[in-house]
Each structure stands twice: as C-alpha cells, then as structure tokens.
Design a protein around this nucleic acid. Structure first.
Lengths: 234, 234
DNA sequence: GGGGGCGGTTGACCAAGGTCAATGCCATCG
DNA sequence: CGATGGCATTGACCTTGGTCAACCGCCCCC
C-alpha cells in the first residue's frame, strides 16, 4: 500500500520516529498493519510472545496488570501519537508482553513487526538513539509514578493528574475535559473509584473546581498547585 | 593505568558490558575513574547534571527520592556487578539524575564518562543493544514494583523480597542473610520500619521463619510461597 | 565503665482509604 | 417509552498500616 507520505508525517509525532531517516521510515511503513479496535477489545495479553509494537493513531489504550484476585492496575494510558511495547524486544528469551493492552475507546493503530525494526536498528544508530530516548523517558515516568504512589497521598495524585491535563499556555480559569472514564483514571492513580469521587467532591466543596460529569472547570489553579507544593505557574 | 585485563573480566558481569567488543571495553576502561565511598556518602544528588554513569564493584548503593517533607523512598538497591545511571544520557536537554545515590555500606565503583560511552554507542550497534537490554530489564523491574505497590499489601511485598533473597537451587531450610539494614529494606518496600518489624514478628509467631538480628532462617518455604500465591517450588 | 547514639522492637492510638451496599444517572435498546 | 446495565456517587463501617512514644540492645568512643 502506498500511504507513505501521510503515514510518515503522522508517525513523526512519536519521539521514536522523530529523527529516523526517511528511508527507514518507509521500510517500516511498508510492513505495517492497520488495526481497528472497539471499546473493550484486547490488543494483547500479558505473557503473550511480543512480536509487534504499536503506534496509536486515534483513541485511548490502557496498559494494565491484573492481580490474582482480578483487580486491575492501569500502568500507563496511551494517547494518540505515542508508541508502546517497543521496549519488550530486548527482554532476552524471546520477549513477552509484561502487561495487558486494551482499548478504552474506539482506536486505530499501526502495528510494526519487531523483526523488521530490529534489523533496522542494527544499521542505524540514529534509530537506536530514538529508541533509547523513548525508553529512558518511559523509565523516568515510571520512577515518578513510584514516587507519587509511595511518597504522596490520593488527593495529591489526583490533583497532579488534573494539573497535567491542563494545556501549557492557559492563563484563564482552565477547562479540563476528562478523555478517560473515571474508573480508569482511578486505577491509573491506584485509588478506588469511590475515593476518586469523594476527593472530587471535597475539592468542589472547597471551591477549587466545578464538576459536570467528565467536564471539570478549575476555579483556582493556584490553590491546586499549592496543594501539590508546586511553585506559582512558571 | 593498565588494569584492563582484570577490570574487563569484572565488568563483563554487567549485562551492559557482557557482549561488548574488547576494543570498546578498553576505550571505556582507560577513561574510567575509581571511586571509593564510606557509608552515608553521597554519590550524586537528584537534579545534578548527569555526566557519568557507574559500575558497582563492591558494597551497596541506594537510589532514592525524597519527598518535600524529607521522607525517603528507595527506588532501587544496587549490588556489586550492576551498572546504573546509564539511562539518563538520553533524557534530552542535558540529562539530570532523576534520583539520589548514596552508599549504604563502604563501596567501590568505576565511573565512566557519558560522552565517551555515547561516542562508542554511535559506532557499535552491539553496544547499543547491550544498553537497550539493560534498560528494558530496568523498565520491567519498575513495572513489577508498581504492580506490587498497588495490587499487593505490605506482607506480600516483604515475603516476596525474602523469597528473592533465597539462592535459586536451595532445597533445604534456607538461610537468608540480610545484606541491607532493615530500615533501608523498609523504604525499598514502601513500608515503615515499625511495620517491617511487626510483619517479621507475625511470620515468626506463625512458625514460618526464625529471626536473629539480620539473619533469617526460613522454616517453611512452601508456606511463604503460598502467601504470595506462587506455585510449589519449580 | 558509663554515656550517648543508632537501629530495631513493641505498644497504643489514629486516620486514610478500602469495602460493601444502596441509590442515582444516563445512554442504549427492544 | 419503559427496562436494562454500566458508571458514578454517597453513606456507614472496617482494616491496614502509619504515627508517636517508650524502650531495648549494641557498638563505639571518650
């Protein structure tokens, strides 16, 4: 299929591909598969042999672990423009996916063969560096997550999450549209849905935010930032 | 300094160097620095520009974060034969250490210049693959940590830690010598030292273990494994 | 040898957040 | 249109593990 030009432009959004040579991009794109998922569809399961990795074009994917009792912990929420499962290729002994991946909303993805990509990495140190960059970003993110799970309480984590959702350059009372069901956000933050509800109610009563369904108006950004001891804007 | 032969052998223990060409190893070793730390000495602080990464020859190093209130969370415990802080090189904008590093016991290390190593990665895809491998192992470990922090309780985490300390092939009642002060283990497991104490006491009362200072005799491995729903030996 | 300090232990109490159950709120579908 | 089912909210209660304080044992050092 000859979709290279637009597909390439689309893929460049991902750190992994940002600096990759056009020639290599084309090789990858030729071998890519289109995937379409409906809400609730599984993309892969923990423990399956990892033969492909993914670029999310549209929709929302959750990466999660299950406890033996069936409790779910969302490790990461993937949004359009991001790649995932690239790191698994290097886990010796024929890598297996370390988490489950499932569509939260309708989603479109590209899937790439690990083998193709590995071959490409062998020849291109730029491609290697792209991958190293995206892996070290992910490492950093996980360390931050561990810190906030252990050193911070539920309110802190939720407030930090809300603040992350606010676009950079907004000065006025910002509107946050939760693109993710509250239950999934709760799991990502390692709290129960009930607790999430209660914390939102508390913030609402404190006059810090307004809540209408999954639309949140932040009435006092500064107060929120203070709650997580962040310096005044920046 | 001409210490290449022994140093090379020593470094091969680390995944990062296992498959590296001798020639590249030598380049690295020539530029390496010896470091000696006493207990409590800082190796680097979170936020400092990361110009070097490390190989631990001897002793114990803790990597940790501090909350604004001064609480400490140990993210990782480094043991001899392991490398750390290699991943920081790729964090764009002149990387900074994302954690603090401090010696728990007397320690000896080699320090390598990131710049030298980066140059070497440019030329050698094997070196790149070594690094990719060690980063993906670390990613996997962090995901496991997040899972056990959120999906499992304190007893589970401590028992899992104890079981990890038992050498693979032991069939008889295994002896575990804690190489790490209990306070540090507690922080690594994200529990308070008091709680650690209490859980050990509970396991002792249950007849599962014997505790003498930092020497622990596991009286019933199978019962411990059941506690964390692991299958009978393997 | 006595004092001080540090790491660890134990007890009493407390609070954050989990659990369980009832209820509300839509959106979808027959 | 009313019924069904999933998600969210609220309340009552409970559990885990944190906090605070006292104390112990040990090592080190003057």
């Amino acid at each position: 299929m000859n979709r290279s030009p637009e597909a390439a432009r689309e893929l460049r959004r991902a750190y992994l591909f940002a600096d990759m040579a056009d020639e290599h991009m084309n090789t990858l794109i030729q071998g890519a598969h289109d995937i379409h998922l409906n809400p609730g569809d599984a993309l892969f399961r923990q423990g399956q042999p990892a033969e492909r990795f993914f670029f999310l074009r549209d929709g929302l994917i959750k990466l999660f672990r299950l406890s033996p009792e069936g409790d779910e912990k969302v490790i990461e929420l993937m949004r359009p423009g991001e790649t995932f499962a690239e790191a698994v290729m290097f886990m010796g002994t024929q890598g297996r996916y370390p988490v489950n991946a499932e569509a939260v909303s309708e989603a479109r993805l590209y899937a790439f063969e690990q083998k193709t990509f590995l071959g490409l990495l062998r020849e291109s140190s730029d491609a290697c560096f792209g991958l190293l960059g995206s892996m070290s970003r992910r490492l950093h993110m996980l360390v931050n997550q561990i810190e906030s799970l252990t050193l911070q309480n539920a309110t802190y984590r939720l407030v930090a999450y809300l603040l992350e959702q606010i676009p950079r350059d907004v000065k006025t009372s910002p509107e946050v549209q939760l693109t993710t069901p509250k239950g999934v956000i709760a799991s990502r933050l390692a709290i129960q849905p009930e607790t999430l509800s209660r914390i939102l109610a508390k913030l609402r009563q404190g006059g810090l935010i307004d809540v209408h369904g999954n639309h949140i108006t932040v009435r006092d950004v500064q107060a929120l930032r203070n709650l997580v001891h962040l310096p005044p804007q920046d």
